[in-house]
Amino acid sequence: MANIDPKFGKALKEYGAIDFNACYNCGTCTAVCSLSTPEDSFPREMVRLSVLGLESDLTSSLKPWMCYYCGECTTHCPQTANPGELMMSLRRWLTSKYDWTGFSGLLYKSLPLSIIVFIVTAIGVILFAAEESFNLETIIHFGHYFEMIAIGAVFSFILLPNLIRMWYFVILKPKIKVSFSTYLKSFKELIIHMFTQKRSLGCDDNEVRWIEHLILVIGYLSLLFTTVFLDWFSSQNLFIILLGYVESAIIFVITVIFVQSRMNKSKEVSKFSQPSDWFFIIWLLLMGLSAFMVRAFIDLDILESNIWMYLVHLIVLVQWALIIVPFGKWTHFLYRSFAMYFDSLKRNQG
């Protein structure tokens, strides 16, 4: 028994969904999808559940995460109901459902609120720097510790509880019985998908995008490692210094490509950009760029006289760590790979 909720469609549109009500259930989207299988077919089913507003079916579903937005469905939809963008919106909606603070949902739905939060964070960093009399050494020292503390705190208080909530919605609530050994056996799926995103290779002609994405992920993670654990900005080791340069340059180059593609709207995946998409890709670009510049200023020995450069980097870093990572698009890194893990659990249940 399920009750229809016609208001759900309107709510979903705040997450970017467009025109999916035009769907007349022909199933072309599912037929052309290269990732859909007879056992786990989408996107038509997801469109249908969204039209009817069957929320509990959607929260327990992993299918939105099984989609890698190749866009074939949208290209071929005879009703221009845009199933690809619907799947994307469902991922945003699910992200906000998993988030126990509810903050994700507010940011997705309101651009003014997002901007205010970004501004407030920037002002906070400047006020802090003023408090420290713009002493570069203290601020860099703080920045370094901030990164470590932020990672730990965001993971412990936001991301981990949200992953547990995801597990609750997907495994526990639908009463799927999974043995402990299955949890262990399937764990490799999590690691493989987290670091390779290999499922997206199932999309037709997706190799270039996959490699770009892979390089970006590796570049991002290794830069994180280099700055936090190898203390790039204070390091004297030539190898570490060069490594940091290469990593930040890679992030910059790839993100520029991604921004260009969102501006050109040449592919289905980049045709519809929500503010959350722009924030994610631009802040990543700014991260790479500002980190590169900071280290360059250090090596040119002009950072002392241009402390604003480090402040810019710190603002970007704080906004990234406190807004985008816990409540923004960054979480797809976790939810996508955990979705593959939970999917493997569901397959091997009992």
């Binding site: 028994m1 399920a2 009750n3 229809i4 259930n25 089913e45 249908r48 559940l49 009817l52 069957l54």
Partner: peptide, 11 residues
Amino acid sequence: DILTNGREIEV
């Protein structure tokens, strides 16, 4: 509803 895998749906 046959479009929702035959799920029983009520209004």
